[in-house]
Design a binder for these strands. Structure first.
Lengths: 122, 122
DNA sequence: GAACTATATTCCTAAGAAGGAATACAGATA
DNA sequence: TATCTGTATTCCTTCTTAGGAATATAGTTC
């Protein structure tokens, strides 16, 4: 994975928020919508952008698409994601996103391992 | 300095090469031209892009414009530049640039502290 | 002050990206 | 099969960017 390609993915505020959240584990699209407060198209398109470039991976689970960071990230990606998480700590927006994520985790059924189907997500 | 702005500066191959070289110390435009093998306009415009966004600082020295990394970078910038240098180590292009820089350093008069004027640069 | 050197800026064109509205699609449920 | 839910894609418009050619500018040297 080329370094420039990584930075191209990082140079949009929405994508940074998505990636920051993904640092905590896989999430479905409606979670992102809920936390960022952005329209579905926007979220979905940015996730597609990241997916095409290999910065996230997807897996379908019933109606939901679960996005996560790559299982085997390149060294460069790993380093840059770590750097991002680190920088995000000092920023109000990213911190607020993480706080919202925590709240959702309590309200929603855990999705990553379980999930099968049925339960409403958001 | 906003994180996104930093990444916007990093998402171009030429700018990455410039910043990687600047990790070694300040340089004038003709050095960049020589090392990257790119036309003057291109170099100059990318340096302007970086300057406007605060990723580099300039100082005139006679005919030459000496570009360097900010004397007081923000935390985020410092972290990301460190990450860049680190990643660049593993990449042939950036390594070749640094090698060329070393060669030039032998052939050129040192510019950073001395310099006054007179001597031809490149 | 004329010529020269190093660098910046302007003008233009082509390409890419972001955002929204509308629509398509896949799987689940009734 | 019809409908519903979650998500993706298409179409369109607007904005930003990169790159090159030509030109401008500031400082230097003769």
């Amino acid at each position: 994975m080329e370094l420039v390609k990584i930075y191209e993915c990082l140079c949009d505020a929405t994508r940074l928020r998505l990636l920051n959240l993904l640092g905590q584990g896989p999430l479905c699209v409606c979670h992102f919508q809920e936390i960022l407060g952005e329209p579905q198209v926007k979220i979905s398109k940015h996730l597609a952008y990241l997916r095409i470039r290999g910065l996230v991976e997807v897996e379908r689970q019933g109606n939901w698409m679960i996005y996560g960071l790559p299982a085997k990230p390149t060294r460069e990606l790993k380093k840059n994601l770590a750097c991002l998480q680190d920088c995000a700590k000092e920023n109000a927006i990213y911190r607020r996103d993480l706080a919202r994520l925590k709240k959702l985790d309590l309200a929603c059924a855990p999705l990553a391992p379980a999930g099968k189907s049925g339960a409403k997500c958001c």
